Amino acid sequence: MNLTVNGKPSTVDGAESLNVTELLSALKVAQAEYVTVELNGEVLEREAFDATTVKDGDAVEFLY
């Protein structure tokens, strides 16, 4: 899956889609429990991480 992460191209191997929690784990995001996630310009509530799917071509920003 090809994404733009914090403005840079990134690839997650072996996945066509992941939820936000899985993406944080796959990318080994440090202190993931404290990060705010913006997906395609929309800031996500932490409670929505498990239910929100990240797909090929999406833009993700991790805000600390």
Rank of each mutant, 00 (worst) to 15 (best):
M1T: 05
M1I: 12
M1C: 06
M1N: 01
M1P: 02
N2Q: 12
L3T: 01
L3K: 00
L3H: 02
L3W: 04
L3G: 00
L3P: 01
T4H: 06
T4M: 13
T4A: 05
T4L: 12
T4N: 06
V5M: 05
V5L: 07
V5K: 01
V5I: 13
V5F: 05
N6T: 03
N6G: 05
N6D: 05
N6P: 01
G7K: 05
G7A: 04
G7P: 02
G7Y: 04
K8I: 12
K8G: 05
K8S: 08
P9A: 09
P9K: 10
P9L: 11
P9S: 08
P9V: 08
S10T: 15
S10R: 15
S10P: 01
S10V: 15
S10C: 15
S10A: 15
T11V: 12
T11L: 11
T11K: 14
T11Q: 11
T11D: 04
D13R: 14
D13E: 13
D13S: 14
D13C: 15
D13P: 14
G14K: 07
G14M: 09
G14N: 09
A15G: 08
A15V: 14
A15F: 14
A15R: 13
E16L: 14
E16F: 14
E16K: 14
E16M: 14
S17M: 10
S17F: 12
S17D: 06
S17K: 10
S17G: 08
L18P: 03
L18M: 14
L18S: 03
N19H: 04
N19W: 04
N19M: 06
V20C: 05
V20F: 06
T21P: 03
T21N: 10
E22I: 05
E22C: 09
E22D: 08
L23R: 00
L23G: 00
L24Q: 00
L24V: 04
L24C: 05
L24D: 00
L24S: 01
S25R: 14
S25D: 10
S25H: 12
A26Q: 08
A26K: 12
A26F: 14
L27H: 02
L27K: 00
L27G: 00
L27M: 07
L27I: 04
L27Y: 06
L27T: 01
K28M: 09
K28C: 14
K28V: 05
K28W: 06
V29L: 08
V29W: 07
V29N: 03
V29A: 04
V29F: 07
A30M: 11
A30S: 11
A30L: 11
A30Q: 11
A30H: 12
Q31V: 08
Q31D: 13
Q31N: 14
Q31E: 10
Q31M: 14
A32I: 13
A32C: 13
A32W: 13
A32L: 11
A32D: 08
E33C: 14
E33L: 10
E33N: 10
E33I: 08
Y34Q: 08
Y34A: 07
V35D: 04
V35Y: 07
V35M: 09
V35T: 05
T36Q: 10
T36W: 10
T36H: 09
T36Y: 09
V37S: 01
V37D: 00
V37G: 02
V37F: 06
E38R: 15
E38F: 15
L39W: 04
L39T: 00
L39N: 00
L39Y: 04
L39I: 08
L39Q: 01
L39F: 05
N40Q: 01
N40G: 02
N40K: 01
N40L: 01
N40Y: 02
N40C: 04
N40I: 03
G41S: 04
G41E: 02
E42I: 15
V43K: 11
V43P: 08
V43S: 06
V43H: 07
V43L: 12
L44K: 03
L44G: 01
E45A: 13
E45D: 12
E45V: 10
E45S: 13
E45K: 13
E45C: 13
R46I: 05
R46L: 06
R46C: 07
R46T: 05
R46K: 07
E47R: 10
E47D: 12
E47F: 10
E47T: 12
E47I: 09
E47P: 06
E47C: 12
A48R: 11
A48K: 12
A48C: 12
A48Q: 12
A48S: 11
A48M: 13
A48T: 09
F49K: 00
F49I: 01
F49G: 03
D50Y: 07
D50N: 10
D50A: 10
A51L: 13
A51H: 14
A51I: 14
A51P: 03
A51K: 14
T52P: 01
T52Q: 06
T52R: 07
T52S: 05
T52C: 06
T53K: 11
T53P: 08
T53G: 06
V54W: 02
K55V: 09
K55W: 07
K55E: 05
K55I: 07
K55F: 09
D56A: 09
G57N: 05
G57W: 03
G57A: 04
G57Y: 03
G57L: 03
G57T: 04
D58H: 02
D58M: 05
D58L: 03
A59M: 11
A59V: 15
A59N: 12
A59F: 13
V60C: 05
V60H: 02
E61N: 15
E61G: 07
L63W: 15
L63T: 15
Y64V: 09
Y64T: 08
